[in-house]
């Protein structure tokens, strides 16, 4: 299925800033199940857009605006073809653990087998691990399904209850959060049993008949786990789904910190306000006449010149929902 994605990010600065530098991880991945057929990134004020592939294989676009400016708009448009992945078996033999361990010992999965900044082991996580009886009693695939639905059942989807930089304990304590929190919790649980597991930043195409919990006009996040004989399989604990033809993958990393849609710094004594609009539509449908912007959120980054003010992690609005 072909999708057209529009992702508009608007920054408004309370005072003019200069020398802003921005990195964007917005170009959908091209691999076996997904092909990014076209991608355009434009900015206002205009800037020369450069790109590179980061150490995780994600395409990153970067640009800078040297002169004074009070607004910055980043518009990303992508045309993506997503295939449904091959259907999963109902379960795997219990011997799959052995196979998995042998794969893990041969290649370098170190970083996605240990806690990363947002997936630290905590007493609350240990408690939740016991609650879901996460261990190697089931085969790996069955276990992943159980964790996926376990998180879905035990947590309420509640935007604005956690922050973009919230540790998993916030969501674990309140038993509510958004897709970013659920993904971090699932990653932490899955890595504990020795399954390589990574964070996926992307979009979910919502159809009314699906009753997805996650917000439609927003970026989305889920996880991918490595299974022997199958490869990477996506699990979406927010919606109790195995990732399929509606999940559009943009970037992968150890956790959110590796893949924020944008991050940047600027010089100037200003606060920045940010709003984001996303639309994901089948490419056959016409472009939306109007984009729905998230409410404007003031993010408290202001630096005294010549200090750098950082927009990283302050970008509450970019929390993946």
């Amino acid at each position: 299925m072909h999708y057209t994605i529009r992702h508009i990010t608007r920054f408004h600065y309370t005072h003019p800033v200069s020398e802003s530098l921005t990195e964007a991880r917005m170009q959908p991945i091209t691999d076996a199940n997904q092909r990014c057929l076209n991608f355009e990134l434009s900015t206002s004020p205009e800037a020369r857009i450069m790109s590179y592939r980061d150490h995780l294989g994600n395409i990153v676009h970067n640009f800078d605006i040297p002169g004074h400016h009070s607004k910055l708009t980043i518009t990303a448009k992508a045309l993506v073809d997503v295939q449904d992945p091959a259907p999963l078996p109902d379960s795997l033999p219990i011997s799959a653990w052995k196979e998995l361990d042998s794969i893990v010992s041969r290649d370098d999965f170190y970083e996605i087998l240990v806690p990363s900044p947002f997936t630290q082991a905590t007493p609350l996580l240990a408690e939740f691990t016991r609650e879901l009886a996460v261990g190697r009693d089931d085969d790996p695939l069955t276990l992943l399904h159980r964790i996926n639905s376990g998180i879905f059942q035990r947590f309420d989807y509640a935007p604005q209850t956690t922050r973009v930089d919230s540790p998993i304990d916030d969501a674990l304590r309140a038993r509510k959060g958004v897709c970013q929190d659920f993904s971090h919790i699932m990653i932490a649980l899955v890595r504990q049993v020795g399954i390589p597991c990574r964070y996926v930043s992307g979009y979910l195409f919502h159809r009314t008949e699906d009753h997805d919990r996650s917000a439609a006009d927003s970026s989305h996040a889920w996880v991918e786990a490595l299974l022997p004989g199958i490869g990477w399989v996506g699990f979406d604990p927010t919606n109790n789904l195995v990732a399929g033809g509606r999940h559009i993958r943009v970037a992968v990393g150890c956790d959110y910190a590796d893949v924020p849609p944008t991050r940047g710094v600027f010089k100037g004594q200003a606060k920045s306000e940010l709003s984001v609009a996303v639309s994901v539509l089948p490419s056959t449908e016409p472009a939306p006449t109007q984009m729905n912007y998230s409410p404007i959120l003031s993010i408290g980054s202001h630096g005294a010149e010549p200090d750098w003010a950082s927009e990283e992690f302050a970008q509450q609005i970019q929390q993946q929902q």
Binding site: L21, E23, R263, G264, V265, P306, D307, W308, S310, E312
Partner: peptide, 10 residues
């Protein structure tokens, strides 16, 4: 590089 590494670096 405050963009790549420590954001608080001046």
């Amino acid at each position: 590089d405050p963009l790549a590494f420590r954001p608080d670096s001046m």
